[in-house]
């Protein structure tokens, strides 16, 4: 079913390799280039707040964009191996727990955007993927998002990125399993179970590397085209706050010792519908100014995983009590993560 203009595979491999080498050189020399740009070209005085803010932006923005470019390209290629049809086939008839673990993991790599949430939900349920397993997928997929992971890696380091991925996975697995055990099928709109597809999954055509690379590249164009402005805004706000907002500003509101900060952050996060690209740079400043890691993680997860627009979309297929259960279970999971990390660090 895929129609692609097939280019020469060798030429393409050469292009990709060349691109990666150019990338590595630029990434390696980013710090000296930033210093040259700020100190020599702009001729700014060293050590002032304004210089610090400009230096922060001029270094962090290209760094994050470079990381996005490289990783989205390769994730885009990996994703061509995981179509929603294959994922559905892998999850059909899986029991609670095994199914939830698999669904959460597949949620990371299966490409899907929020406007496809309904057809995806219907397609899964129709072919016999259990409700709880479907939910694990629907929770993991937006929460563990590649842009969020790259930004966390770029601005915080690999440990925080890993913590985010693993706690997100655990929440998706357990929340889905709970929804499965509670047997909430009665709160799914009845017409959902009457939907039937008349066509079978067709045999997939073998796709050559050049077609996969083209798909990776269109993922880059699509995602970067959408997020570059949010990343710029987020890092600009970060750069401003970096120099001008006093240290410890966030301690009283989002610090370690304020017990209510975690649930408050989750509540504030639900109506905030920002994409990961905008929220991570802002969270990095919150932490720098004294917000604790647990509270900040909880805030970020709530913004990304629990979004009001998605709930409104899901209302078409789910009755209100099920949506509330979904928000409740995921919200509690996020709060547990928040408290846990406030307690550890």
């Amino acid at each position: 079913m895929t129609h692609y203009v097939h280019k020469n595979n060798n030429l393409l491999i050469a292009l990709v390799t060349g691109g990666v080498i150019v990338w590595l050189v630029i990434y390696h020399f980013l710090q000296p280039m930033t210093d040259w740009f700020v100190d020599s070209l702009l001729g700014m005085t060293q050590g002032t707040k304004l210089t610090d803010a400009v230096r922060f932006f001029v270094f962090e923005y290209p760094k994050v964009m470079l990381l996005l470019l490289l990783i989205i390209f390769f994730v885009g290629i990996i994703r061509t191996f995981f179509t929603p049809e294959r994922t559905r086939k892998a999850l059909e008839g899986r029991r609670t727990f095994t199914g939830n673990v698999m669904a959460s993991l597949l949620g990371i790599v299966t490409p899907f955007c929020s406007c496809s949430a309904i057809p995806l939900f219907l397609g899964f349920v129709e072919s016999g993927v259990p409700l709880g397993v479907t939910f694990s997928f629907l929770i993991a997929s937006p929460m563990i998002n590649e842009v969020a992971i790259i930004l966390l890696y770029g601005l915080f380091g690999w440990k925080t990125a890993l913590i985010y991925v693993s706690t997100g996975l655990i929440i998706a697995m357990i929340a889905g399993a709970i929804i499965g055990v509670l047997k909430l099928e009665k709160w799914v709109e009845p017409w959902v179970f009457e939907v039937h597809s008349e066509q079978q999954d067709e045999a997939e055509e073998r796709i050559c590397f050049s077609a996969r690379a083209q798909m990776g590249w269109s993922a880059v164009k699509e995602i970067i085209g959408k997020v570059w402005i949010y990343v710029a805004l987020g890092i600009a706000i970060g750069a401003g706050a970096h120099g001008y907002v006093p240290q410890g500003f966030m301690v009283s509101l989002m610090g370690n010792n304020t017990w209510y900060s975690v649930p408050l952050s989750v509540l504030i996060g639900i109506p905030l519908y920002s994409n990961a690209a905008g929220i991570v740079p802002i969270v990095s400043v919150l932490i720098e100014k004294g917000a604790s890691l647990g509270t900040s993680l909880a805030f970020m997860m709530s913004v990304i995983a629990l979004s009001l627009p998605e709930m409104i979309i899901l209302r078409k297929v789910l009755k209100l009590p099920l949506i509330m259960t979904f928000v409740g279970v995921v919200g509690i999971g996020i709060m547990i993560v928040g408290y846990l990390f406030n307690w550890i660090f």
């Binding site: 129609h3 929603p84 049809e85 496809s116 057809p119 219907l122 008349e198 066509q199």
Partner: peptide, 25 residues
């Protein structure tokens, strides 16, 4: 949405020519 599901499509948009799904998503 129920009509869309008849074509076994889980990611939109999809293009159907003479009742055959040509591509999706």
């Amino acid at each position: 949405i129920a009509d869309i599901m008849r074509y076994n499509v889980m990611v939109t948009p999809a293009l159907v020519i003479n009742e055959k799904v040509i591509f999706k998503g």
